[in-house]
């Protein structure tokens, strides 16, 4: 999910018909620059070197989404697949939830997320939280550092009895990263762009990627 305004110009993207490292190359109608779909970066053309802002999108079930967002609108288009992407569940080994922060990349295999739906991880200087929704196939990433009364604190999360709580204050958090109950109520975690991706494509794009492993 990208913002598509660059230097005050709105770009209209489509599929270029080219592939690079097993992944899609997009083209914009306005400048004909070629963009890596996975990197969100112009690889060729007048906008070469420009990176699009990634917006946090989440993949989840319609049921979970409409409950979380009762005012949601919906794209209305004809169906292209009867039942695509049960694959995440059926073949989790082929997919990762990819996280890229500055010059670092880390992949969280869906297998690991299914086994451990709440992951408190440290990634370089960043403290991150990965939350996997076992009812859907949604995985989200958050920064788990918060400011409480001007003090920086790093929280550890866990899920018990279906509720996401932090160990420090026992406050209750929504799946969207908002504290809904307890002393931290009202505080929101910063969501980080996490991209579901084929494991192979991710490794090809980010050969330096770290891969999360379950603790033994």
């Amino acid at each position: 999910m990208y913002a598509r305004k660059v230097n005050d110009q709105e770009l209209n993207f489509s599929v270029s018909g080219m592939l690079w490292r097993r992944s899609l190359i997009m083209i914009d109608r306005e400048t004909k620059s070629l963009w890596s779909h996975l990197l969100g970066k112009a690889m060729d053309g007048t906008l070469k070197g420009t990176t699009l802002e990634t917006l946090p999108g989440v993949i989840t079930t319609w049921k979970a989404w409409k409950e979380a967002q009762p005012k949601t609108s919906v794209l209305v288009m004809s169906r292209t697949a009867r039942e695509f992407v049960k694959e995440f569940h059926e073949q989790p080994g082929r997919f990762v939830l990819g996280l890229r922060l500055l010059h670092r990349a880390k992949a969280y295999p869906f297998e690991a997320l299914i086994a451990q739906p709440v992951i408190n991880d440290t990634f370089g200087e960043d403290a991150v939280l990965l939350v996997y929704d076992p009812d859907g196939t949604g995985g989200r990433a958050f920064d788990r550092r918060v400011k409480v009364k001007n003090e920086d604190r790093t929280l550890q999360f866990e899920r018990g009895k279906g509720k996401l709580t932090d160990r420090e204050t026992r406050s209750v958090w929504s799946e969207e990263g908002r504290c809904v109950e307890g002393v931290l109520k009202g505080i929101e975690l910063r969501e980080l762009p996490a991209i579901p991706s084929f494991a192979k494509a991710w490794k090809q794009f980010y050969p330096e990627t770290e891969i999360y492993k379950l603790p033994k």
Partner: peptide
């Protein structure tokens, strides 16, 4: 908020 059904995006 907006939802894009995956089964219309393949």
């Amino acid at each position: 908020a907006r939802a894009y059904p995956i089964n219309t995006l393949t």
